[in-house]
């Protein structure tokens, strides 16, 4: 064991459901292994900590080549969800529900609860100053556990020596 504790920092820049989970899963694993965790939310990633958005994150079937019909439990092999169907009203909600059900089926907590677990486990959450300004947000808009709104330069200072993962 080295003297200095291993540190890892995630930059979450996306709000699509498939892109919000990697940092949560890896961050939780890191905490479980005794690694310090910092998460910086920027751009669309702000949705993850936005109280009004965190329970409404979605995944769209349009132009998503990995999302196949068999996600619905039908044995259709590599048959995709046609983009022309994906543009119909309600398809994004439908795909999102499928994904949420799959997640719940393997006991993966919803994003809000996952963030609470991470905070309780000692992860430090920060919001990006530029995104806060751009989206007209303030601290009151964020879920509990977000420590502060910081600049990119602050982030660089606070993650010295950390491994950084951009998502």
């Amino acid at each position: 064991m080295s003297e200095e504790n291993r540190k890892i920092a995630f930059i979450c820049s996306k709000g699509n459901m498939d892109m919000v989970y990697p940092a949560l899963v890896m961050g939780w694993a890191a905490l479980g292994n005794g690694i310090d965790v910092t998460i910086f939310f920027t751009f669309w990633g702000m949705d993850m900590i936005n109280k009004a958005r965190v329970d409404r994150l979605e995944v769209a079937p349009v132009a998503n080549t990995s999302m196949k019909m068999n996600l619905m439990g039908v044995d259709t092999g590599n048959l995709g969800i046609p983009n022309i169907m994906g543009v119909l009203p309600g398809m994004t909600a439908f795909a999102t529900k499928l994904m949420n059900d799959k997640m719940a089926g393997i006991d993966v907590p919803p994003v809000r609860e996952y963030l609470e677990m991470l905070v309780d486990g000692g992860a430090k959450l920060y919001a990006c100053k530029m995104s806060v300004d751009m989206f007209d947000l303030e601290m009151d808009d964020f879920v509990d556990g977000v420590i502060d709104i910081v600049t990119a330069s602050d982030f660089m200072d606070m993650t010295e020596g950390a491994q950084i993962v951009f998502i």
Binding site: N5, A29, G32, N33, G34, I35
Partner: peptide, 8 residues
């Protein structure tokens, strides 16, 4: 179980 409860 500070610093890594999963393994500890």
């Amino acid at each position: 179980f500070p610093k890594g409860p999963a393994k500890k």
